[in-house]
Lab assay of single mutants.
Amino acid sequence: EETGVRVELAEEDDGEKIAIKLWLRIEDIKKLKGKYKDNEAIEFSFDLERDVPEDVAQEMVESGYVCEGDHKTMAKAIKDRVSLIKRK
């Protein structure tokens, strides 16, 4: 499903790190509610043992990086990427 958002690794995952750096990349602004630039990327750290995707997305909303209306879309994108990383 195309959401307009993609999360990718910002650094090589060696399988050892607990906290990883990720990029939340805006790919299609028409599919989102907030005002973003095409190909805008937000770099953030995610602790694989402690962080919760919904909470991280909420922090982005509170910091003004993400529109409240896009919270669920961002949280799902983060959750999907993190579950792929954890499965390795």
Rank of each mutant, 00 (worst) to 15 (best):
D38F: 07
D14V: 10
E59G: 11
D80W: 01
A57L: 04
D38T: 14
K30E: 13
A19I: 15
I20F: 04
L48C: 06
D70R: 01
W23C: 15
E40W: 13
R50S: 12
A19V: 15
K30G: 14
V56N: 00
D28P: 00
S45E: 15
K35P: 11
R50W: 02
G64V: 00
L24G: 06
R50N: 14
L48Q: 04
I78M: 06
S83L: 06
V61I: 11
Y65W: 11
S63W: 06
C67T: 07
K86R: 10
A10Y: 08
K31P: 08
Y36F: 04
D28H: 07
I20D: 06
S63N: 13
D47P: 03
R87T: 06
Y65I: 15
I18P: 14
D70S: 02
K21N: 09
R25H: 11
K86M: 04
E54F: 02
I20A: 05
A19F: 09
Y36V: 06
D70I: 03
M60D: 03
K33Q: 11
I26A: 13
F46H: 03
E27H: 14
K35H: 12
V61D: 02
A19T: 14
D13P: 10
E49Y: 09
K33N: 10
L22W: 07
M60E: 01
D80S: 07
Y65Q: 14
A10R: 06
L48D: 03
H71S: 13
R50E: 08
L84T: 14
I78P: 00
R25M: 09
K31L: 07
V5A: 06
A19L: 15
D80V: 00
V56I: 12
L48P: 08
R6K: 10
I18F: 09
L32W: 04
M74G: 02
N39E: 10
S63T: 10
G64P: 00
I78S: 00
D55N: 12
S83N: 14
V56F: 12
D55T: 12
E40D: 11
F46K: 02
E16W: 00
R50F: 02
G34L: 04
E59H: 11
R81M: 06
W23H: 15
K33S: 09
L22D: 06
M74S: 01
S45T: 15
F46W: 01
S45P: 09
D55H: 14
D14E: 11
K37H: 12
E16C: 12
D51I: 01
R87P: 03
F44I: 10
L48M: 10
K31Y: 09
K72N: 09
D28M: 00
A41M: 14
G4S: 08
S83G: 11
F44S: 01
I29V: 15
E49L: 09
S83H: 10
I20N: 08
I18Q: 14
E59T: 13
Q58H: 09
I20K: 07
I42E: 02
A41R: 14
G34D: 05
D13K: 05
E12R: 09
K30T: 14
W23G: 09
K35Q: 11
A75P: 00
E40P: 09
I85P: 05
G34I: 02
A75W: 01
E40L: 12
D47S: 02
G64Y: 02
D80E: 14
E8A: 03
W23S: 15
I29N: 15
M60S: 02
L32C: 07
I42G: 00
F46E: 01
A57C: 07
G34F: 02
K21D: 03
K37M: 09
E11Y: 00
K86C: 05
K30F: 03
L9V: 07
D80R: 07
D55G: 07
R81G: 11
I42V: 08
I29G: 15
G34H: 02
D80N: 09
D47F: 04
K30L: 06
I20Q: 05
Q58C: 04
A75C: 08
A75I: 06
D14H: 06
K31E: 10
V52L: 10
K21M: 02
P53Q: 00
